[in-house]
Computed example of a mutant assay.
Amino acid sequence: MKRFSMLLAGLMLALLTSTSAVAAIEVHSFDNVDQEEAFQELTATLRCPKCQNNTIADSDAPLARDMRQKVYDMLQQGKDKEDVVDYMVARYGNFVTYEPPVMLSTIILWLGPLFFIVGGFTVLVLRSRRNNEPQAAANDDLDEAEAKRLKAMLAEMEQDNVENKNDKVEK
């Protein structure tokens, strides 16, 4: 009996302390089918600013819930899709649309990495050319005395190599 009461107490404690996931289901009633289709389309095409890559239809964030409610309210007021999108862009910025308009800021974002790649490649080419030019110029600028001295040193080195080979052959 004692075991049964302990088991019952443990079960009651587990039930009292456990939390169950309660998902809120949003139910909206529309005046006509066109409003419902517009709501479905808008919630599937507007991006949640908090979730970054989810639509407001897919997101469970409180901000997305508020945005869905605002879309519903605006459609109930008779606003069309463009009005709703314009409101959301004015409120949250161009980020809420998956296809932002072409503006100077978006062009910079798309072309910026390309400019860095081209600029880096240009710097590499210029530096490699600059490093090769002084060596070539130094070889061309030898005067006659230096040329004779260089030939003498090369001949001496060649002679030492021949003597070393002969020593190795004799051993």
Score class of each variant (00 low, 15 high):
M1V: 04
R3C: 00
S5W: 01
S5Y: 09
S5A: 01
L7Y: 07
L8I: 09
G10E: 10
M12W: 03
A14W: 11
L15M: 12
L15I: 12
L15C: 11
L16M: 14
S18E: 13
S18Q: 15
T19R: 09
A23M: 14
I25C: 06
I25S: 13
E26A: 12
V27Y: 11
V27Q: 13
V27D: 08
V27I: 15
S29L: 15
S29P: 13
S29C: 13
F30S: 04
V33H: 11
V33K: 11
V33S: 12
D34Y: 10
Q35D: 12
E36V: 12
E37V: 14
A38F: 06
Q40R: 12
E41V: 13
L42W: 09
A44Y: 08
A44D: 11
R47D: 01
C48G: 04
P49S: 02
P49N: 05
P49E: 02
K50W: 01
Q52S: 07
N53Y: 10
N54S: 09
D58R: 15
D58N: 13
S59A: 11
D60L: 14
A61V: 03
A61S: 12
A61P: 00
L63P: 00
L63G: 05
R65N: 11
R65Y: 09
R65W: 07
D66T: 15
R68H: 04
Q69V: 13
K70R: 13
K70H: 07
V71A: 00
Y72R: 05
Q76A: 05
K79M: 04
E82A: 13
E82N: 12
V85P: 00
D86R: 05
Y87W: 06
V89P: 06
V89S: 03
N94M: 02
F95S: 08
E99M: 00
M103D: 02
M103Y: 00
M103F: 06
L104A: 09
L104Y: 06
T106R: 02
T106V: 00
I107C: 06
I108P: 00
I108N: 00
W110F: 10
W110S: 02
W110V: 08
L111S: 09
P113C: 07
L114D: 10
L114R: 15
F116D: 05
I117T: 13
I117E: 04
G120W: 07
G120R: 06
F121H: 02
F121P: 01
T122W: 09
T122G: 04
L124V: 04
S128I: 01
R129Y: 07
R130F: 05
E133F: 08
E133V: 08
E133Y: 11
P134L: 07
A137E: 04
A137R: 13
A137L: 03
N139K: 15
N139I: 08
D143I: 03
A145M: 06
E146S: 03
K151N: 08
A152P: 07
A152V: 07
L154T: 10
A155G: 06
M157D: 08
E158F: 05
Q159L: 12
Q159I: 06
D160N: 15
N161Y: 14
V162R: 15
V162Y: 15
N164V: 14
N166M: 15
N166A: 13
V169Q: 15
